[in-house]
Amino acid sequence: MSERKKLLQVIDLKLHFPIYGGLLRRQVGAVKAVDGVTFDIFEGETLGIVGESGCGKSTAGRAVLRLYETTAGSILIDGVDIATLSQEELRKKRPAMQMVFQDPQASLNPRMTVAGIIGEPLDEHTNWPRAKKLERIYELMDAVGLNRDFANRYPHAFSGGQRQRIGIARALALNPRFIVCDEPIAALDVSIQAQVVNLLEELQEQFGLTYMFISHDLSMVRHIADRVAVMYLGKIVELAPVSRLYDHPAHPYTEALLSAVPEPDPSLERRKDRIVLQGDVPSPANPPKGCNFCTRCPKVMDICRETEPVTVEVAPGHFAACHLIPQTAGQTGGAEVEHNQTRIQQGEVV
C-alpha cells in the first residue's frame, strides 16, 4: 500500500478562525475548525471524509485547496507545499486540483451560460482560440452526460442533478489530477445521488482521478471510497481502509456513527442495538480538555478527561486516536508499541 505514490500529503493542518471581542476588538479566542489533521491520499484512490455537521469536513476540504489561509501545517501536492506558495504560484498550481461543491444551486453563476461556466477555467488558464475552447466544452459535456444543445442555457433551467454535472464538467475542464468533492450529493434526491456517484466513479476510471470525497452519508462513502477518515471536532479520530473501518471500527465515535446507518432488513433492524450519543458536539471554540469526544463517549474513562489520546496504528493502514486502543490492540498482538508513536502531532494543542 505504501509503495503507491502519495499525491497529497497533509501534515498537521490547522485552521483556526479568530474570534474578536471586547472594546478594542482584540482576539479573544479561535474557532478550531480544523485542528491538527494529518493524512495522505495516494494517487488514483478515493479518500472518504465522514463526520457529523460542523466537525470541520468541508473546512478541511477547502483548506486543502487553500481556499482558506491555513493557520499552521503543510499541504504537499507532488511534494510542493501549497500552504506557503504565493498567490501567483498558487494560481499556476490550480489546474491540478479542483473542487465540486455541495449546493449545485449556489455554485453556478446565474448570469453565465453553461458554456461560459464550463469554459471559465479554460479562459483563465489557456489562450486557446475560441473554436478549440468550444470543442473542449462540448467534449466535457459529453463526458458528464449533458446534451450539447444545453450550452447556451442558464443554470436556472436545469435540475439539481444536471447542475451538479455542470459543476463536475467545470472541475474537469483543466484535466485535474485531484478533485475535492465537498458533499456533492447532499443536496440531491436519492435517485440522482446514485447517478452522480456513478458518474464520479466512471470519470475516476476514465481520467485516473484522485478524490477527496466529503460526505455524511456513510453508505455512499462505503460505496465510493477506498479509505475513510472519520472526523470529530476538527480532528481525525480514525482512518482505515473502507472494509476494515466498517467491519472493525476501533473508535467509539465510529461505532456510534456506523450504528446509525439504516438497516434494510426490518427483522435485523428491530434487533439492532443502536448507540445513541447524548448531547451536542462541544463548541470548536472551546473544546473539552483531554479527548475531544469525552463529553459524549459511551465508554468514557477517567484518563479521557485528562490527556489527549495519540493516534496509533491499530492494524496496518488503520489508525485511530483513543485511549481504549492500546489495550484492545494488546490482546491481538504484541507489536503495538512500535506502531504507537508512528503517527503523532496531535498532542500540542493550546
Binding site: L67, R94, M99, P121, E124, G167, R170
Partner: peptide, 16 residues
C-alpha cells in the same frame, strides 16, 4: 456565494 468560491478555486484573480 459558492460560485465565487468556485471561481477562486479555478484560480480567477480578484479583478476578473
Amino acid at each position: 456565494r459558492e460560485y465565487v468560491l468556485a471561481a477562486r478555486s479555478i484560480g480567477t484573480p480578484n479583478r476578473r
